[in-house]
């Protein structure tokens, strides 16, 4: 019975989010699509930062690896799309694993700085990659090819993005509620005690980093076909700060918080920009400091608190 109810909720949510794609148009579609990418990235980053407790600054770098890899494989090198897709995903995963092996040995914020250095290096490489990466100008003028004679375009591509978000959420929730998710949270809270409970701390850390970074790569692949253009700045430091802020404001460790935070901070500039101009980033900074000081469980904590109060 519960299974059926859950299935219905998932179906209804996916249907509603997809229907929106057909109803929106023009500029709104573009905003909606990018918001979906942000939500997908926020979900996997929340698992890495909020649940596994790893402050890593490489999430957008892996999205960049995915995006550049698919475009280079499928369009610069002309490989069949299916193969290019698998290669791009495998490259993201392999690179994530290689970065995770030494990085997860670092304590606390030193991980952040090592991954920050890594993502800056990725940026340097894609900016200096010559014709292969298109240099600082990036690559444009490619199109999503036919897959099994089907062309996905217009609102249907938005549906693909909705499915990306839904499957990311489904996977991460499932993992979170398993022994793996508990091991991740235990390491975040107290690594010494976690090891004493038989948890192989290194292994779990490497798994969590590799898995979430691969999901970032997947989101990057999807991003590459939104505007059919990729360039280096998107994958730089600015966006990783914003992603981190989304998780903190939404509520670190909560899937629903990641979604709320991503939607809220992504859409806020559209409302704030006419009022405070570019100053909305100041507003975000203040919001982050206030959240950490006064509402550490973020917006999700506010949402959760309400029914609890009613119950008691």
């Amino acid at each position: 019975m519960r299974l059926l109810r859950d299935a219905l909720i998932w179906f209804a949510a996916i249907a509603a989010a997809s229907a929106l794609a057909f109803w929106l148009g023009g500029y709104a579609t573009d905003v909606y699509r990018k918001m979906l990418i942000w939500v997908a990235l926020a979900l996997s980053y929340n698992f890495l930062f909020g649940i596994a407790g790893q402050v890593a600054f490489s999430h957008f770098a892996f999205a960049g690896v995915g995006a550049y890899a698919i475009v280079i494989f499928a369009h610069q090198l002309g490989l069949p799309f299916g193969l290019a897709f698998i290669l791009a995903l495998a490259l993201s995963a392999a690179l994530a694993f290689v970065v995770a092996l030494p990085s997860t040995r670092l304590e606390g914020f030193y991980l952040a700085l090592a991954t920050l250095a890594f993502s800056q290096l990725v940026l340097v490489v894609i900016s200096e990659g010559g014709d292969l990466t298109g240099g600082t100008g990036g690559i444009a003028n490619y199109r999503l090819p036919h897959v099994f004679d089907v062309t996905i375009s217009g609102p249907w591509y938005t549906v693909v993005l909705v499915l990306l978000v839904a499957s990311t959420l489904w996977m991460l929730r499932r993992l979170d509620r398993s022994a793996f998710g508990r091991a991740c949270r235990a390491i975040r809270d107290n690594a010494v005690a976690a090891a004493a409970m038989g948890i192989d701390v290194r292994r779990i850390k490497v798994l969590a980093f590799t898995l979430t970074s691969t999901l970032a790569g997947l989101a990057g692949i999807a991003y590459a076909y939104i505007d059919n253009v990729i360039n280096p700045p998107v994958f730089g430091l600015e966006n990783i700060f914003l992603l981190l802020f989304m998780i903190i404001v939404g509520g670190a460790g909560s899937h629903i918080g990641a979604i709320i935070g991503a939607v809220f901070l992504y859409l806020a500039p559209f409302v704030l920009e006419p009022i405070v101009g570019h100053g909305f980033m100041v507003v975000f900074g203040v919001l982050v400091v206030l959240t950490i000081l006064f509402q550490p469980s973020g917006l999700a904590g506010l949402v959760n608190r309400w029914p609890a109060r009613r119950a008691t």
């Binding site: 402050v55 606390g108 914020f109 700060f241 981190l244 802020f245 903190i248 101009g277 570019h278 100053g279 980033m281 100041v282 975000f284 900074g285 203040v286 919001l287 982050v288 400091v289 950490i292 000081l293 550490p296």
Partner: peptide
């Protein structure tokens, strides 16, 4: 945050917020 006994990551993350506040204020 120190008075509350918060985890050491909390002030570090709060200072990232401060970083953005400073930079954007300078721009403005």
């Amino acid at each position: 945050l120190i008075a509350r006994g918060a985890n050491i990551t909390s002030p570090i993350l709060a200072l990232l917020g401060v970083l953005v506040i400073f930079r954007e204020s300078l721009t403005m």
